[in-house]
Simulated assay, not measured.
Amino acid sequence: MSDIDTTPLSAALPSLIFESCLYGIALILFISTVYFIATRRTLASRRQTVKHHFISPVFVGATVLFLAATAHWVVEIYTVFYFLSHFKGAVPEQAFYASPTYGADIVEATLIFIAILVGDSLMIYRLWIVWARNLRVLIFPIFSLSGVIVMVIGLFCVLSRSTANFPFLGGTESKPWVATGFLLSLFTSFYCTSFIAFRILKFNVRSTGNSGLTFFLAILVESAALQTFWLIFASATNLAGSSGEFQLLTLGAFPVVLCISNLLIHARVGLGWSSESAGVQPAKREYQGAV
Results as ranks from 00 to 15, higher is better:
Phe190Lys: 02
Leu213Glu: 02
Pro8Ser: 09
Val58Leu: 10
Ile129Trp: 10
Glu245Phe: 03
Val257Tyr: 03
Glu108Gln: 15
Glu222Cys: 15
Thr214Val: 08
Arg46Ser: 10
Gln94Tyr: 11
Leu251Arg: 06
Pro282Arg: 09
Ile116Asp: 14
Ser2Thr: 14
Lys284Met: 09
Leu271Asn: 07
Asp120Leu: 15
Gly212Glu: 12
Ile114Gly: 07
Ala38Arg: 06
Phe156Ile: 09
Arg126Pro: 03
Ser56His: 01
Val257Asn: 03
Thr101Gly: 03
Ser160Val: 06
Leu159Thr: 11
Gln48Ser: 03
Val50Gln: 08
Arg126Val: 04
Thr7Val: 01
Cys192Lys: 08
Gly170Pro: 00
Arg40Gln: 08
Ile142Met: 06
Tyr191Ser: 10
Met151Lys: 01
Glu286Ala: 15
Thr39Val: 00
Leu251Phe: 09
Ser121Val: 12
Phe30Cys: 03
Cys21Asp: 07
Val269Ile: 04
Thr33Ser: 13
Glu108Val: 11
Ala234Lys: 02
Ala253Thr: 01
Trp273Tyr: 12
Leu217Val: 03
Tyr125Asn: 11
Leu248Arg: 12
Ala71Ser: 14
Leu220Gln: 06
Glu19Ser: 08
Thr39Asn: 03
Ser194Asn: 05
Ile116Glu: 14
Ala290Gln: 11
Pro8Thr: 11
Leu122His: 03
Ala12Ser: 11
Ser85Ala: 07
Leu263Thr: 04
Arg268Gly: 06
Leu84Phe: 02
Gly171Trp: 01
Ala164Cys: 03
Ala283Asp: 12
Ala290Glu: 14
Thr49Lys: 08
Tyr191His: 15
Glu245His: 01
Ile142Gln: 01
Ser243Gly: 07
Lys88Gly: 07
Leu239Ser: 05
Glu286Gln: 14
Leu84Pro: 02
Ala12His: 10
Tyr102His: 14
Gly24Asp: 09
Leu29Ile: 02
Ile200Glu: 04
Ala236Phe: 10
Thr172Trp: 00
His53Asn: 03
Arg268Tyr: 12
Ser121Phe: 13
Asn134Ser: 15
Ala38Ser: 09
Asn165Trp: 13
